[in-house]
Design a protein around this nucleic acid. Structure first.
Lengths: 344, 344
DNA sequence: ATGTTTACTGAAAGCGGTTACAAAGCTGAT
DNA sequence: ATCAGCTTTGTAACCGCTTTCAGTAAACAT
């Protein structure tokens, strides 16, 4: 280990050809005779040479790498998205430079600078934590889009070089909530654990649904859980607190399956009969929905579809095609055991 | 978008200095007067210049990037590990190039070549799927280690430039199993969903424990679940099948919390009283353990500790220090509601 | 005024590739 | 034999940055 690394010059010397020829073989470009090709190949095999991607990148000004930005790669949903992106990108000959930024704006900015300096060919913002309510705060995304195509999963920002693929969160929660009301559950608690763009969309879906269903809501019945999304205990405690504070609810709509799961545990500890006396609807339709009994009715926002579609749009952009700036998919309410919703 | 990118020459021209000076400012090296520094800074700010990391990397022959290899980044445990690695590496000024290889050997090899051509400063193999029972199959890891330091999480391979950090899986399962037997549960079903290195260690921990406890075991009581680790239903079906095949068990030791969770669901559906008549021990102590009632006793293998330690070893190696080739941490049996183990 | 330091700054080489352009080697047609 | 036209190969410029080495200017000592 640690001998001087083999370069294209070593290969050219060993094979008795010029570096240009070696380069041609490497990029299996046309116009190399079988004979020389073989000699070069042999030299490469013999030395275990691997081309230096920097040097190549310097010349070509592309490294075939896409930056993937996420707040927290260990989140169940985001991890799935990252997985699909990585898979799709690789299939298209691109690599993934992963940056977990956390939730601080300045860290996000730093991560973007870094990705740009590494000359990524595009940046995918995974998850809606990157988009702020105040448009001015989203300037940093626009800035990034001036250097490189920007893809947003589950978020929306207007821009020349920005492409958004998202699930219609507002619509999904809206439909779920209305169905719940129509099925006789009016005392609904809405719980959420994020204030991201899509979280805000979900919340407004809930509010609009309640309004259109003619049910007045109070602020006590929307509850923000400000803790780790693995903290099932903390979530249950929050539900206890809501009850203690005087709001008696018989249904929970959650922005996330974790919260839904803690709602199921809460309801069961209170002796409620699910789904007859108590309903729960989660979000993401993750494996967590299968982790309790009854299993949780949840909204499937089709993360695989979203990711594949987003990647294909990015590939189109990179090859210079005109691509849609905004693509929205409908979510699906997957009914399992925690609801008995009125059929349409 | 798409104007010619700003280079160090543009800055030097704008600031009226040479590119060397700009470079010095960029690397805040010594010997630049405040005055020129200010001029350069201003030019940088004005143009929004970001240095080209290729060019820098070409010269320095390092890109401050670590390759992270994993079979499946969406796995709960692996995703956590990746998260910690990314965090620690970033804190040390390194980036993470993520490659999800899947489970095919040739894909793993291809991924490694790619990482090496991108001149990563090191490679972290996340998870034990990379190590095969037959040493000859692990040659590809040795090969990689000839070019770049190789770090193995939860696996072991001998080699000059290979560093292993792992949890003592054998010991953890051994202790858990023995405790279970000592607590009166002898008809234990061992279920696993992987044949990776650490999975094999866990299994031998179970076998040794049973042997040392003087309990004969049959092959029917070790069951491999060959399906997605999100398929809770499939797992439950497998348990039904074990029962149907004639082995009556009153305890389950699982190589993974998912399997443990399905065991809890199974036991509850059969009307068993947990933990008095039926015990379950999981592995990883993930959030899944809190997703059922009673919560699952599980082995915590301290992934955060492992990852941080591994990263610090890698940093040591990269700065030329002598570092331990093999570090093993003990796991911890975290007792919750699915067991009532005899106290020591 | 002159010699010596010290503090900055610039010119140029080099990192390892790609590629435009030129040159050389063959082929077959004249 | 000569030449056009093709294929194959080599030369050298260039990508954007770091860094060595040399040079200039200012500051200080004599």
């Amino acid at each position: 280990m640690k001998e001087r690394t083999v370069t294209i010059y070593d290969i050219s010397e060993k094979a008795g050809v010029s570096i240009a020829t070696v380069s041609r073989v490497l990029n299996n470009s046309s116009n190399v005779s079988d004979n020389t090709r073989k000699k070069v190949m042999a030299a490469i095999k013999e030395t275990g040479y691997t081309p230096n991607a920097f040097a190549r990148g310097l010349g070509l000004n592309t490294m075939k790498t896409i930056g993937i930005l996420t707040a927290d790669s260990s989140d169940l949903y985001l991890a799935k998205a990252i997985y699909y992106f990585e898979e799709e990108l690789r299939a298209n000959g691109y690599d993934s430079l992963l940056c977990c930024t956390g939730y601080e704006l300045k860290d996000k900015k730093a991560a973007i600078d870094l990705l740009i300096s590494k000359k990524v060919d595009g940046i995918i913002f995974v998850g809606s934590h990157f988009v702020y309510p105040d448009a001015a705060d989203n300037k940093y995304i626009i800035n990034a889009s001036e250097k490189v195509p920007v893809m947003l999963l589950n978020a929306e920002v207007e821009g020349d070089n920005i492409y958004c693929v998202s699930s219609d969160d507002h619509d999904s929660v809206y439909r779920a909530t209305r169905k719940l009301v129509e099925s006789g559950f009016k005392d609904i608690l809405y719980v959420y654990n994020s204030t991201s763009y899509s979280a805000r969309r979900k919340e407004s879906g809930f509010r609009d649904a309640m309004k259109d269903a003619g049910v007045d809501i109070s602020n006590t019945q929307l509850r923000y859980f400000n803790g780790s999304n693995e903290d099932v205990h903390g979530m249950s405690a929050m539900l206890e607190d809501v009850e203690a504070s005087g709001f008696k609810f018989n249904a929970v709509v959650a922005s996330d399956d974790t919260l839904a799961l803690s709602a199921v545990k809460y309801a069961q500890s209170k002796g409620y009969n699910i789904p007859d006396d108590f309903s729960v609807i989660g979000y993401n339709n993750s494996m967590l929905t299968a982790c309790c009994d009854p299993e949780i009715t949840s909204i499937d926002n089709k993360v695989e579809t979203l990711c594949k579609h987003l990647t294909s749009i990015l590939m189109g952009v990179l090859s210079g095609e005109e691509m849609p700036r905004k693509t929205v998919f409908k979510g699906e309410i997957v009914e399992k055991g925690t609801t008995s919703l009125k059929k349409d």
